[in-house]
Structures are given as C-alpha cells and as structure tokens.
C-alpha cells in the first residue's frame, strides 16, 4: 500500500530539488504562476529565460508521461464554461496573491515565509470546500 506513495514522494523531491537548483545557480524562485505572469513583460531577456523554463517543464512532463503511460485526458462530462471560469480564477487569483502551489507552496514554505504559509492554508482550505460543492452538491465529476 505504502509503495503507491513512493512516486508522489519521489516527484515531490524532484520538484524541491528543481527549486534548489534554480535558487543556487540563478537566484530565482521556481514559481510557475510567476513565470507565466512574467511572459507579459517588456524585458525580452527575462522573457526568454521564463519561456525556456516553461518549455523544459513541458518536455519533462512529456518524457515521464510517455514512460508511465499516464497523461491527463479530457473529462467529456465536465462543462467547458466551468473549466474556463476556473482558469480565469486561477490566473487572476495567483496574480493577486503573487504565487501559487509552487511559488508559495514549495518555495515560500521552504524559506519559512509567513505570507506563503497563510496563502497555502487559504487556497488548500478553499479548494477542498469548492471540490466538495462541485462534486457532492452539484454532482459534477
């Protein structure tokens, strides 16, 4: 039973190690929402660096998904408007909070930031409440 949690643990360690590599060499936070937000910048050098990280992220995910044979598939019964609304909320919310699961969740907690701890507690609690409503009250899965 416990072995089924080895891939999640190994994946987490790999994500954490990525954050350490990026900080040790480039002095940058491995925050994905910040990288994406940074694509709307006039600084073309920073833009290229962020694009490179994001492209490598996609390649890394593709390689492992090829190997495990597990990649995300579309949920046909999931309403497109609801998915679009969720996307806007994730984009708007992470921009306002200046961080997401990686920037606040991994990097922020790892450096003992109070702001990040509060952000994580809020978004995990609100996400759990939301999933409850969507799945068990509205019956959408």
């Amino acid at each position: 039973m416990l072995t089924s949690y080895l891939p999640p643990l190994a994946g987490g360690v790999l994500i954490g190690a990525s954050a350490v590599v990026l900080m040790l060499f480039n002095g940058r936070v491995a925050g994905v929402s910040g990288m994406v937000r940074g694509l709307f910048t006039r600084d073309s050098f920073a833009l290229a660096e962020r694009l490179l990280f994001l492209a490598a992220l996609v390649a890394g995910a593709a390689l492992v998904e090829q190997w495990t044979g597990m990649s995300p598939s579309a949920r046909p019964a999931f309403p497109a408007w609801l998915l679009a609304m969720a996307g806007v909320l994730v984009g708007f919310g992470t921009a306002l909070a200046r961080g997401c699961t990686s920037g606040h969740g991994v990097c922020g907690l790892a450096r003992g930031s109070l702001r990040s701890l509060v952000a994580v507690l809020v978004f995990v609690a609100v996400a759990m409440l939301t999933t409850f409503v969507v799945r068990h009250v509205w019956g959408i899965a």
Binding site: A62, L82, G87, V88, F92, T94, L96, A119, V122, T131
Partner: peptide
C-alpha cells in the same frame, strides 16, 4: 490581496484540479 487572491485561486483549483504548473504541463499532451 494575498487573502483574496489565494481564495480565488483555491476556488479555481478546487473546480478544475489544475494549478498553474500542471496547467502548463497540459501542453505535453
């Protein structure tokens, strides 16, 4: 801003199951 932003992000994450990293990784498929 931190509280409101995190709450809005939590709603979107709880609906979809995607936070920004996995959303970008969707491009792999």
């Amino acid at each position: 801003a931190l509280l409101a932003g995190s709450a809005l992000f939590g709603i979107g994450w709880g609906i979809s199951g995607y936070c920004p990293g996995p959303a970008v990784a969707l491009l792999a498929v």
